[in-house]
């Protein structure tokens, strides 16, 4: 019961309280790049969730079975970069071959994910916090869902902004930054609701 309770708190924490985009400011390039339309942000969210959950399993295994026994924790970053980048590449090849329809939706987003900071950041935080296997997975899925939530919120606002009468200098990225700031402020309201 208490374990389940812990996982639930970890998940909700990753989705809302410690939302990776809006309170930790990771993955901002995708956040601004892809949030122009709701459709593409949903595809991007799906790509992020799946890539992050699988890559966090792989990085957990490498961290647990290779790096820690040899006392090479300081190699984490560079090894994780290699692992994630090649995993995404591999995933792209496999999806292209076996699920061509999914590839049509995901195609470009997968490549955007490959070198993104949020995909690297979550496994690094998992390793830093010494999460076990299940906790790493839950944290990765939670932060992926949190990222999608932020992306979809942003895309919904931006689609409405298209039709609003915004002062000329703020059209485009300028106004978007302000909206992102407001969203982040709103999410700050959740801070401290779940003890770390």
């Amino acid at each position: 019961m208490s374990a389940l309770h812990d996982y639930f708190l970890l998940f909700m924490g990753a989705v809302i309280v410690n939302n990776y985009v809006l309170t930790r400011f990771l993955g901002l390039c995708i956040f601004f790049g892809v949030s122009k339309s709701l459709n593409s942000s949903v595809s991007m969210g799906m790509a992020i969730v799946s890539v992050m959950s699988i890559s966090s399993i792989m990085t957990w295994a490498i961290n647990h079975f290779v790096l820690q026994p040899f006392g090479l924790d300081f190699l984490r970053t560079i090894v994780f970069v290699i692992v994630i980048a090649s995993f995404v590449q591999l995933l792209e090849i496999v999806v292209k071959r076996f699920l061509p329809n999914l590839y049509k939706i995901w195609g470009i987003y997968l490549l955007l994910v490959a070198t993104n900071c949020i995909v690297l950041g979550v496994p690094l935080i998992n390793a830093e916090e010494n999460f076990n296997f299940m906790k790493s997975l839950v944290n990765a899925i939670g932060s992926g869902v949190g990222f999608s939530l932020a992306l979809i919120l942003m895309a919904s606002v931006r689609e409405k902004m298209e039709y609003a009468n915004i002062p000329k200098p703020l059209r485009g990225l300028g106004g978007t930054f302000i909206v992102a700031g407001m969203l982040a402020l709103a999410f700050q309201g959740f801070s401290g609701m779940i003890p770390k």
Binding site: I62, V66, L67, L72, L75, I82, I93, K96, R97, P100
Partner: peptide, 25 residues
Amino acid sequence: IVIILVVVGAFFGLLLAFANSKLAV
């Protein structure tokens, strides 16, 4: 360090090369 990086790099490099030749569309 050298061993681990070489092993990890070679493993994924070979995996990608294999996947690319076998699974390429």
